[in-house]
Simulated scan of single mutants.
Amino acid sequence: MEYTQLGRTGLKVGRIVLGTMNFGPRTDESDSHAIMDAALDAGINLFDTANVYGWGENKGRTEEIIGTWFAKGGERRDKVVLATKLFGHMGPDGPVWPNHDRLSALNIRRAVDASLKRLRTDHIDLYQFHHVDRRTPWDEIWQAVDVLIQQGKILYVGSSNHAGWHIAQANEAARRRGALGLVSEQCHYNLVERRAEMEVIPAAQAYGLGVIPWSPLGGGLLGGVLRKERDGTSASGRSAEALANTTVRDRIQSYEDLLDKHGLEPGEVALAWLLSRPGITGPIVGPRTADQLSSALRAVELRLSDDLLSALDDIFPGPGQAPEAFAW
């Protein structure tokens, strides 16, 4: 496994990040434990989760599964850089009781203690804001974070789904307090969805944040969806909705045709493309099975030629340069 620095921290993390969203809802506890063991054996050390994973009435279940895995010992916890997230409320779906969601100091305090209990650990290495909270001032958020760091409950803080200006606003507020601020950003980024190149990734690079793309296969679009369709497996969910758009379908067909000529697997190329992009720490993969994890690991060893990268740009053109590039 290749390793890289997580932003401007001293943390060394693997170029593939283990996402755990499927643990509980789609992968049972035993298989989830087996996948985590296989990931650790392969050198993957950054495990990403969130307090709401498990969803619905089972919110928190994914953290619990990770916690029972840590409890098996074998230095599992010591070898893992543990990342979790907060924002959404943890009660039943429906109206939210005040101060039980978002990023108020009160909810941050409640959420971190609850996650620590489920995860069966005394600290979280990377505590991430799952979404932007437009109601809570950054000074309040950083004050709460300062306390948690002093207590030893968290080490670093990251963001998820933040715009470029949110990253700037957050880190300028932290700078005024003499704090480290955000060290990473999880953003929606893949060959199909490249808008993060406009401002999110440049902002992250300017402030020294590691970038951790989520949905690297575009909700399944980049995983050989049309090939599977020909084999009798219909697309579902977001993939099916996207493929109803003729332009999207044509691009995915061109993508798969291109990779067929090179004898390459679509999902592995999609991950390898992300690993080739500047500023990227590593994409989050959410394997439901050990085979899916093995496929993701092969992407780390895959080197894409300049000609292939150019052809991919032709199929999935990026958004172009950031607006600042057009200044006189």
Rank of each mutant, 00 (worst) to 15 (best):
E2S: 13
L6V: 10
R8H: 15
R8L: 13
T9I: 05
T9L: 05
L11I: 13
K12L: 09
G14D: 10
G14A: 15
I16N: 03
V17N: 02
P25G: 01
T27H: 02
S30M: 08
S30W: 03
M36K: 04
G43M: 07
G43T: 07
N45D: 09
N45A: 10
F47N: 06
A50D: 09
N51F: 02
V52C: 05
G54F: 11
G56R: 13
N58I: 02
E64I: 07
T68D: 13
W69C: 14
F70A: 12
K72N: 08
G73M: 13
G74I: 01
R76D: 02
R76K: 10
R77N: 06
V80E: 05
K85E: 05
F87E: 04
F87W: 15
F87A: 09
H89T: 09
M90D: 10
P92W: 11
D93C: 03
W97S: 10
D101P: 02
S104G: 10
L106W: 07
R110N: 08
A111E: 05
D113R: 11
Y127I: 06
Y127T: 03
H130G: 04
R135T: 13
R135C: 02
T136H: 06
E140R: 06
Q143T: 15
I149Y: 00
G152C: 09
K153W: 06
K153M: 07
L155T: 14
V157I: 12
G158P: 01
A163K: 12
H166F: 00
A170P: 01
N171Y: 06
E172R: 14
A174P: 14
R176F: 14
G178K: 13
A179G: 08
V183A: 00
E185C: 06
Y189M: 01
N190Y: 13
N190W: 12
L191F: 01
E193K: 11
M198T: 15
V200S: 09
I201Q: 08
Y207H: 15
Y207T: 03
V211Q: 10
P213Y: 02
P216D: 09
G219L: 04
G224A: 09
G224I: 09
L226N: 14
T233S: 14
T233N: 13
S234Q: 15
S234D: 14
A235S: 15
R238C: 00
R238W: 07
R238N: 12
A240I: 07
E241L: 14
V248I: 15
D250A: 15
R251L: 04
Q253M: 12
S254V: 00
H262P: 00
E265N: 13
G267M: 00
A270T: 03
A272H: 07
W273T: 08
L274Y: 08
L274T: 04
I280A: 08
T281V: 11
P283S: 08
I284T: 09
I284R: 08
G286S: 14
T289V: 05
Q292G: 04
L293C: 02
A296V: 09
R298N: 14
L302A: 09
R303H: 12
D306G: 12
D307F: 01
L308A: 07
L308S: 11
S310Y: 05
P317W: 06
P317I: 04
G318T: 01
Q321N: 11
